Amino acid sequence: MNTAATAAKPRLKTSAMIASFADPGQKTTSAPFGHALVKAAEENPAIVGLTADLGKYTDMHIFAQAYPERFFQMGMAEQLLFGAAAGMAQTGLVPFASTYSVFAARRAYDFLCLDIAEPNLNVNIVGGLPGLTTGYGPSHQATEDMAIFRGMPNLTIVDPCDAVDIEQAVPQLAASDGPTYLRLLRGKVPSVLDEYGYTFELGKAKVLRGGADVVFVSSGLMTMRALQAAKDLAADHVDVAVVHTPTIKPFDAATVLAEVDTDRLVVTLENHSVIGGLFETVASAAVQAGIGRRIVPIGLPDEFLHAGALPTLHERYGLSVDRIKQTVLASL
């Protein structure tokens, strides 16, 4: 072992369970989902909140404190959570049901599919710890949740970048027809999109910045990393455009493919397995449109990931800004 090199590089540390991906000193907003749901509930008395014993860890406790009579603690029973939410929606209520993404996708899929999606009910599933946002290993890392859910008819999938996305998405999800799945970023969530004149529109992708050499197509927290990497790559004389795609399904192929169908290098960035997520969504749309472009994926590998400190894991699996820059420079 090179002890000098080890000593020169500080160990990266975060809490393994609910770890923040915000950079030191970065502007953040506390519990944007919880506060946005309270605000939406003030205007819509039909909104109710449910959770599977995870209110504190999905920011649903903010809603529970504001509207205790409209909050339902269902215990550690995700099938019951979704079944109850379906029944409430049948009566005209607008449920937001929160749990961890792994439990929503792996344990309660059939209840979401047949009780909620098939009758096209307005039930909004809020999934905490999406992708690699916890260091607790495969039992809690929802690296394949979008792959599991993309094949479900009627289900809208939203992968927000930051607090701005979440705050603006919540009322639109409540007002939309049919079920939705929100990949929740909770706790102290960075706010970055307000610097780009951005507004969230359900079902729409947005070009955040232009660039002559490379096009980043990103979703979720990886849009934040894409913007950071784009700025850093300018020092290497690489001009990078960034297209943010917060809605994975239905996919805004028109906006994305207009950026893909050029002579620039196309790179997708996602906090999800490269199997079944944004990369394959973009590639499929390009093939169907007859666009023969190379698309380089940046995402999580098709394997069960290790446990550990979150920054260390992001570096290991290629999601850090430095690893993004390395991939781009090696691909040009």
Rank of each mutant, 00 (worst) to 15 (best):
A4V: 10
A5H: 08
A8T: 03
P10S: 00
P10D: 00
K13F: 11
S15V: 06
A16N: 14
A19C: 12
S20C: 12
F21D: 10
A22W: 13
A22K: 12
G25H: 08
G25P: 09
T28Q: 03
T29I: 15
F33N: 03
F33D: 02
F33A: 00
K39S: 01
E42Y: 00
A46I: 08
A46L: 10
L50Y: 06
L50W: 06
D53N: 14
Y57R: 07
A66F: 01
E69Q: 14
F71T: 15
E78D: 15
Q79T: 13
L80Q: 15
L81G: 13
A84M: 10
A86M: 06
A86D: 05
F96L: 05
T99I: 08
F103G: 04
F103R: 09
A108H: 05
F111S: 11
E118I: 07
E118L: 11
N120W: 01
N122H: 09
V123N: 06
I125Q: 05
I125F: 08
G127L: 03
L132V: 10
T133N: 08
T133V: 06
G135K: 09
G137S: 12
P138D: 03
S139M: 13
H140K: 09
Q141E: 14
T143P: 07
I148F: 03
F149S: 08
R150E: 00
L155D: 00
D159R: 08
V164P: 01
I166M: 04
E167D: 12
D177H: 13
T180N: 10
L182M: 02
S191A: 13
D194V: 08
Y198P: 01
V207N: 11
L208N: 11
L208E: 11
A212D: 14
M222W: 02
A234P: 00
D236V: 00
H237V: 01
A241V: 08
V243Y: 13
T247E: 03
P250M: 08
D252R: 13
A253V: 10
T255H: 15
A258C: 09
V260Q: 09
D263C: 09
V266T: 09
N271S: 07
N271Y: 06
L278C: 01
V287W: 02
G290Q: 04
G290F: 00
I291M: 05
G292Q: 05
G292D: 11
R294K: 10
I295Q: 08
P297H: 07
I298Q: 06
D302Q: 10
F304Y: 12
L305G: 14
H306G: 04
H306W: 10
T312G: 14
H314S: 04
G318W: 09
S320Y: 07
S320T: 07
V321C: 10
Q326N: 14
